[in-house]
C-alpha cells in the first residue's frame, strides 16, 4: 500500500535510488557467481560481467578434486554456526525476557552497554580469546569456537529479544495466570509462541555470523580437519599458488552462499512478520 502518492518524476527518482542501492549490494555477488562458472582462462581477461562460456569445473574442483577442500569444512562451519545459533537463541530468550519483564534499577543502562559491546570489532576479541581458551584447555576444540561465536552473537540477541518480549502485552501473561497456568505453562503456551519470530531472527543472525566467521577460527583452530570453509578456502588458494586463483575462490564462496540464501528464502516471511499479535488487544 502506498502511503504517499508520488509524481512520475519522483517515482523515477525513487527507482533510480533503489536501483543504485541494489547494484551496490548485488553486483559484486553476481560477479562472484559469474567468475565461478566461467573457465579459468577467462577469469581476469577479458573484463566482462557475463561469461562467454559456462563450466562447473571450478566448483567440482574446489569440492571434489584430490587437492580440493571437500565438503568437510562446510560441515564444520555448519556445525559451529548451528550450535552457536542454538546457544544464542536460548541465552538471548532468557536474558531478553528478564530485561523486558523484571524492573531492574539498571536495566535500561545494562541494555545499552550490552548493545555497545556487540559493536566491538571481533578482531579485538581474538587475543583475549586465545589466552582464555589456552588457559582453560579449550584451545583447538569445537567448544572454543562455538562459545566464542555465541558470546559474540548473544549481546545483540538479548537486545532483540528484549524488544520482542516488550511487544507482548503483560496482560496476556496475567490472563494465563488467572486461567490457572503456572510459570512453565504460561511460557510454553503463551509467551514463547508469540516470541518465535524474534527467536528465529536471533538464531538466524547468530548462524550467519558463525558461518561467515574467519578470523576467530583461524586463530582458535589449528587442526585442518576441524577448520570451517572460510579458513580452509584461504589455505587452499594459498597452496595452489600463482597469485590468487579467482575462479576457484569464487566457486568456494558461491558454495558458501547457498546455505545463507536458502535460510533467508525459507524464513523471510517469518523474519519480516514480527509479532502475529493482531487481536490480542482491541483493534
Amino acid at each position: 500500500m502506498e502511503l504517499v502518492r508520488l509524481s512520475g518524476l519522483q517515482r523515477l527518482a525513487r527507482a533510480a535510488a533503489v536501483g543504485l542501492a541494489l547494484a551496490f549490494a548485488v553486483l559484486p555477488l553476481l560477479w562472484v557467481v559469474s567468475i565461478a562458472v566461467r573457465p579459468g582462462t577467462q577469469a581476469v581477461y577479458p573484463i566482462s560481467i557475463l561469461p562467454t562460456s559456462l563450466t562447473l569445473d571450478n566448483i567440482t574442483g574446489v569440492l571434489f578434486a584430490s587437492n580440493g577442500i571437500g565438503l568437510g569444512p562446510y560441515r564444520n562451519a555448519a556445525f559451529y554456526g548451528l550450535s552457536s545459533a542454538v546457544i544464542t537463541a536460548v541465552a538471548s530468550t532468557l536474558g531478553g525476557y528478564a530485561l523486558a519483564r523484571y524492573s531492574m534499577r539498571s536495566g535500561e543502562a545494562l541494555l545499552i552497554v550490552i548493545l555497545a559491546l556487540s559493536f566491538l570489532p571481533s578482531a579485538s576479541r581474538i587475543v583475549p580469546l586465545f589466552i582464555l581458551t589456552s588457559a582453560t584447555g579449550l584451545y583447538g576444540t569445537a567448544q572454543a569456537v562455538i562459545l566464542a561465536y555465541a558470546a559474540g552473537s548473544i549481546p545483540l540477541g538479548i537486545w532483540l529479544m528484549a524488544g520482542t518480549f516488550r511487544q507482548i502485552p503483560v496482560r496476556l501473561e496475567q490472563a494465563a495466570r488467572i486461567d490457572g497456568a503456572g510459570t512453565v505453562l504460561t511460557m510454553r503456551r503463551v509467551v514463547l509462541p508469540l516470541a518465535i519470530p524474534g527467536i528465529l531472527v536471533v538464531a538466524t543472525l547468530a548462524f550467519i555470523d558463525g558461518w561467515n566467521s574467519f578470523s576467530l577460527p583461524l586463530i582458535l583452530i589449528p587442526k585442518a580437519a576441524a577448520q570451517p570453509y572460510t579458513v580452509a578456502l584461504q589455505r587452499y588458494i594459498q597452496e595452489i599458488g600463482y597469485g590468487i586463483n579467482w575462479p576457484l575462490l569464487s566457486a568456494g564462496s558461491l558454495v558458501a552462499l547457498l546455505p545463507v540464501l536458502s535460510v533467508f528464502a525459507i524464513l523471510q516471511r517469518r523474519l519480516v512478520r514480527v509479532g502475529g499479535l493482531g487481536g490480542a488487544i482491541r483493534g
Binding site: R171, L172, R189, A280, I281
Partner: peptide
Amino acid sequence: FQDYAIYP
C-alpha cells in the same frame, strides 16, 4: 480484561 487479552 478491558482489552480482553485473548491469546492471539
